[in-house]
Amino acid sequence: MTSCHIAEEHIQKVAIFGGTHGNELTGVFLVKHWLENGAEIQRTGLEVKPFITNPRAVKKCTRYIDCDLNRIFDLENLGKKMSEDLPYEVRRAQEINHLFGPKDSEDSYDIIFDLHNTTSNMGCTLILEDSRNNFLIQMFHYIKTSLAPLPCYVYLIEHPSLKYATTRSIAKYPVGIEVGPQPQGVLRADILDQMRKMIKHALDFIHHFNEGKEFPPCAIEVYKIIEKVDYPRDENGEIAAIIHPNLQDQDWKPLHPGDPMFLTLDGKTIPLGGDCTVYPVFVNEAAYYEKKEAFAKTTKLTLNAKSIRCCLH
């Protein structure tokens, strides 16, 4: 018999989150649709729960009410004593943790798909938090293969000092899905179709896995975050240069030392320094102006996964 890495157990509980950011409308629209008619997301033997994560922000069509829901799922915020004085999103995070967690427990949901849009030209993107997770690498390989020839990129946010504390991190297997470009507060049919297909293929993978299909060893190309880059700023902290036209919409493309990065209003080009080629992502993302992030630098690498098969009882 072929030796293989056996994944822990079959997958039982899956959640699909929309509206973690209330103005990213593809996930909101799909989740609302699936709450009314969820036939397309159901798979035999699998509990799939669509869920609106930040209903107040969705109602106002804004990213958040008090603070970013997708950055506060750490033990400090989840452990705060519940009171009306807490920011709305912290209270909501505790409610979500109660419903789908608790985080880092045996009772937490197996998989959470968190649906997002970006204003950046990132196409279909899967966000991975753990480079050693054979199950998710296999799932992402399946999704990428199923979507081809449509490109699907994998963004690895594993980093020693950049801690995200994402909404989906309460699950055993957290999956971020990011599709763009799409303006905030807008629905685009092409973007919706791409996100819908990503979810379909992900659920198909889980179904095949649960039925005992063995997935042979595989490898995927990923883009691992190195650092986030702020806009150049003046002495008052105001933005002093904008994304250069040569960099705009060039997510995932190589940016070499000396290539144009920013452009000042008086026409001066600010190039990339250093001696390493990087791959920019979230270029000129609207939501990241407040976070002082013009783009993120990534490096390209390959992740390998062992063969996996479900432990059938």
Rank of each mutant, 00 (worst) to 15 (best):
A219Q: 07
I112P: 01
T302W: 07
I177E: 00
K306V: 13
H313M: 05
A287R: 15
E290K: 15
Q94H: 11
L35D: 11
I191K: 06
G237H: 06
V278C: 11
K103T: 15
V175C: 05
G185A: 07
C310Q: 08
A15Q: 00
A148K: 15
K163L: 13
F215Y: 15
P216Y: 05
K306D: 13
I65P: 06
R91I: 08
G38A: 15
K268F: 09
C276P: 04
V175H: 02
L78G: 12
K60D: 15
E9T: 14
C276G: 11
L247V: 08
M261I: 10
F215S: 03
E285R: 03
L86K: 11
N37K: 14
K197I: 13
L187D: 00
T264D: 08
I170D: 02
N133I: 03
H256D: 10
A286G: 14
Y64D: 08
S161R: 14
N246W: 09
H159R: 11
T53Y: 05
K213G: 09
D68G: 07
K306R: 09
H98Y: 07
K81R: 06
K213P: 03
H201D: 02
I308N: 00
D85A: 15
Y173P: 03
C310L: 11
Q94I: 12
K49A: 07
C67I: 09
L263T: 07
E211A: 09
S161A: 14
R43Y: 06
L126M: 12
Y279G: 01
I52A: 03
P232A: 03
A202Q: 00
M195N: 04
T167M: 13
I65K: 06
Q250N: 14
L156K: 03
N37A: 12
H208F: 09
L150P: 01
N236T: 07
F209T: 03
F51H: 15
L128S: 01
T119H: 00
V31P: 00
L30Q: 03
E76P: 15
F51M: 11
G237R: 05
A171L: 03
I6G: 13
T125R: 00
R132A: 14
H159G: 15
E293N: 09
F135I: 05
E8F: 12
A294L: 01
K163T: 14
L192W: 06
L75Q: 11
S307Y: 06
H21R: 09
I220L: 14
F262K: 01
Y64R: 08
I170V: 14
L150V: 12
C311Y: 08
F29L: 07
F205S: 01
C276A: 15
R71L: 14
G38V: 08
G79F: 14
E9Q: 07
D259K: 05
N304Q: 07
K13Q: 07
I220F: 04
L136T: 05
T277R: 05
L99C: 09
V154S: 03
S169Y: 07
T269C: 08
K103V: 14
L303P: 01
V186E: 01
C4A: 07
M198C: 15
P217K: 07
E238G: 15
Y231T: 03
Q138W: 00
K32S: 11
S120M: 01
N37W: 06
I16P: 03
G180D: 00
K268N: 13
E178T: 15
A148H: 15
P271V: 12
K292V: 15
K253G: 10
D130V: 02
F140V: 12
K103E: 07
T53V: 09
F295M: 06
V229P: 01
R56H: 08
L78C: 12
E24K: 00
A286V: 11
M122G: 04
M261C: 14
C124M: 08
L312Q: 14
N121D: 04
G19S: 03
Y155H: 14
G180M: 02
P160F: 13
K291I: 06
C61F: 12
P102F: 07
I225S: 14
P102R: 15
M261Q: 06
G19Q: 02
P87R: 13
F73A: 09
S146P: 01
L30T: 00
L115Q: 02
F73S: 09
G180Y: 01
I72N: 13
L255R: 05
I127Q: 08
A305S: 14
A93S: 09
E76N: 15
V283R: 01
G180R: 02
V31E: 00
T125N: 05
Y231K: 00
N97Y: 15
F135E: 01
R43W: 00
A294P: 02
S3W: 13
R92T: 12
I11V: 12
K144Q: 14
L136G: 02
P260Y: 04
F73T: 13
C152G: 01
D110A: 04
V48G: 02
H159N: 10
A219I: 06
A287E: 15
E129T: 13
F282Y: 12
R63L: 05
C152K: 00
G38W: 08
N77C: 13
I206F: 01
R43K: 07
V14H: 00
G273Y: 09
G258T: 06
E293H: 10
E76C: 09
R71M: 13
L192N: 04
D107L: 15
Q138S: 04
A287M: 06
P55A: 14
E221L: 03
R91N: 15
V31F: 01
H10R: 14
T26P: 11
T299S: 10
T118G: 06
C218G: 00
L255E: 01
L301F: 13
L35Y: 11
T2Q: 13
C124W: 00
D193L: 07
E40Y: 04
E290A: 15
V278T: 10
E221P: 06
A148E: 09
D190A: 06
R63Q: 14
P50E: 00
I143N: 00
L99W: 15
N54R: 04
G101T: 06
H313C: 13
Y153G: 08
Y109C: 12
T299E: 11
A202H: 02
A148Y: 11
F135Q: 01
P87N: 09
G22C: 08
E8R: 07
I157K: 11
K103A: 06
Q138V: 02
A39V: 09
G273C: 07
N23D: 15
I270K: 05
D107T: 12
A287P: 14
S108F: 11
Y231F: 14
K80P: 09
H159I: 06
I143G: 00
E89R: 04
I111S: 01
T119I: 03
T277C: 08
V186D: 00
G267Q: 09
I199T: 06
L272Q: 09
N121K: 09
D249Q: 02
Q182W: 01
T20L: 02
E106G: 09
F17Q: 05
I16T: 01
D259M: 11
N121V: 03
D74L: 06
L147P: 00
E211L: 10
A287H: 15
V14F: 01
H313F: 07
P149Q: 04
V229E: 07
V179F: 02
R168M: 15
F282A: 07
T44W: 09
P232T: 03
P217C: 06
I6R: 10
L25W: 10
D266I: 03
A7E: 14
K306H: 13
L265F: 14
E214W: 11
H244C: 02
L150Y: 13
K213W: 09
E76I: 14
M82W: 13
G258E: 11
L312S: 15
R168Y: 12
T298Q: 02
V31S: 03
Y153L: 09
Y64V: 10
G123D: 03
S105Y: 08
K197M: 13
N70R: 07
W34H: 01
C218P: 01
K60S: 13
V222R: 00
C310H: 12
H21V: 09
H98E: 11
I6N: 12
I170P: 15
G258R: 10
F135D: 01
T20E: 03
C124D: 01
G274P: 05
V31I: 12
F209E: 00
E129D: 11
L136D: 01
D74Q: 10
A7T: 12
L162R: 12
E285F: 03
D266Y: 05
T125W: 00
P50Q: 02
M82T: 12
T125K: 02
V186R: 02
C310V: 15
L136Q: 05
E214A: 11
L312K: 12
A148P: 03
H207T: 11
R196K: 06
H141K: 06
N23Q: 05
M261S: 06
S120E: 01
P87M: 11
A93G: 15
K80W: 07
N246F: 12
E36M: 11
L301N: 05
I137V: 11
F282S: 14
K253R: 15
C4F: 10
G212C: 05
Q42W: 11
V90N: 14
Y164P: 09
E214V: 08
P254A: 15
E293Y: 12
